[in-house]
């Protein structure tokens, strides 16, 4: 600190607490609403303290679902979201690792062409090519399948670039040493490069898991069967335009459940998360 402050750090603490309140209040309200009965919420008589319906609401949400709108227990949706997030994260890391390895550690015709073909995909999110992609996935008979849900999201270059950058910093001596030991390209990749990339893979996994879990537009278009819904799609269907039909405690319990896994990942793996975020953006 540069100078002595008369009131210490009172003001910064106050501002930071205000920030925390702004950030936390909507979520607190959602939790409180998920523990109260629908009638008092619909009347606008909601209390700002947790009510006594916690177990009841969460049981119904997870195993039964809403009575009118989604016809599917949220447990199934959580499972679908989890599968999707895992497939996006693992799939993208796997294919990017090996293609980055080929681009950095081999010399072959069209190497740079291939690099640029992959690099350009960095620029366009799935949203801008949504209907053509939909049509292709439909033509390939992949609607309502996990492959259809995840493959178009795997088609981008962030991870490849990241691994390429990291491989460039790995000292050449390692390769020469393992060559002297008689290791071929696959052995070197498996025994030397993979263990070195562990932290990068973990950081990337955290970001990609959150990205996959939070996908919305794509699953909304491509899932038609109720039992293939992800939780983000399910929660939107639970909100009915006429307020009287919306089962708010269940909607709010679903919101809490939808937030829980990615938020837990961010909070528990904060170091990896920050690292992954900074690296994927740069």
């Amino acid at each position: 600190m540069v100078e002595h402050r008369r009131f210490g750090n009172l003001l910064p603490h106050a501002i930071l607490w205000a920030g925390v309140l702004i950030v936390a209040f909507p979520v607190y309200l959602a939790f409180v609403a998920s523990t109260q009965d629908n009638a008092s919420i619909a009347n606008g008589q909601m209390s700002l303290l947790p009510g006594g319906h916690f177990l009841e609401t969460y049981y119904q949400t997870l195993f039964v679902g809403t009575s009118g709108t989604t016809r599917e227990p949220v447990g199934t949706m959580l499972f679908n979201s989890f599968v999707m997030a895992m497939m996006v994260a693992v799939g993208k890391i796997a294919i990017s690792l090996i293609s980055a390895y080929a681009i950095v550690y081999f010399r072959f015709p069209f190497r740079m062409t291939i690099f640029w073909i992959i690099f350009i995909t960095l620029m366009l999110p799935v949203e801008v090519r949504i209907y053509p992609t939909y049509k292709i996935v439909a033509d390939l008979n992949l609607l309502d399948s996990y492959a259809g849900l995840t493959l178009p999201l795997i088609a981008s270059a962030t991870a490849t670039l990241l691994f390429r950058q990291f491989f460039m910093t790995v000292p050449d001596e390692l390769l020469e040493a393992s060559r002297i030991d008689g290791a071929g390209p696959l052995r070197f990749f498996w025994d030397t490069l993979l263990p070195l990339s562990r932290t990068n893979m973990a950081a990337l996994f955290v970001i990609l898991f959150i990205l996959g879990w939070n996908q919305y537009l794509w699953p909304l278009l491509i899932t038609t069967r109720d039992d293939m819904q992800t939780i983000q799609v399910g929660i939107r269907k639970m909100i009915v335009t006429s307020d009287a039909l919306t089962e708010w405690p269940i909607v709010m319990a679903t919101a809490v459940l939808a937030m829980l896994p990615p938020v837990a990942v961010v909070v528990l793996m904060q170091k990896l998360f920050v690292r992954g975020l900074v690296e994927t953006e740069k």
């Binding site: 939070n214 983000q232 929660i235 939107r236 919101a255 937030m259 990615p262 961010v266 909070v267 904060q270």
Partner: peptide, 10 residues
């Protein structure tokens, strides 16, 4: 930092 992880529809 955790609201980063909350999905847009939520």
């Amino acid at each position: 930092i955790w609201p980063y992880a909350v999905a847009p529809p939520v």
